[in-house]
């Protein structure tokens, strides 16, 4: 995909959500987790295999797989 996504931020860095490029239930799930527009997300650490990674979203740590993180466009 052409846009910069959550996958592109290195561990320890933060970004703001611009748009979700998902559909269906995952879309709403990500929204309900708090990934709405302009929400601040920090990548905290990664699992031994490097995927999934853990993100801080609205004071909670949420693990996302690369495939899902790729759908979150950031500013």
């Amino acid at each position: 995909m052409q846009f910069r996504s959550l996958c592109n931020i290195p561990v320890g860095h933060s970004a703001y959500v611009k748009k979700l490029h998902t559909a269906g239930t995952m879309h709403r799930r990500l929204l309900d987790m708090g990934l709405t527009q302009n929400a601040r997300v920090t990548c905290l650490y990664q699992s031994p295999a490097g995927d999934p990674r853990a993100y801080m979203i609205r004071h909670t740590v949420i693990a996302l797989r690369t495939e899902d993180a790729q759908t979150v466009e950031i500013l």
């Binding site: 998902t22 799930r29 990500l30 740590v61 949420i62 693990a63 996302l64 797989r65 495939e67 899902d68």
Partner: peptide, 11 residues
């Protein structure tokens, strides 16, 4: 195919 995955890691 594997579906999406979100998991909360509580304190």
């Amino acid at each position: 195919v594997p579906s999406s995955f979100t998991l909360e890691l509580p304190p």
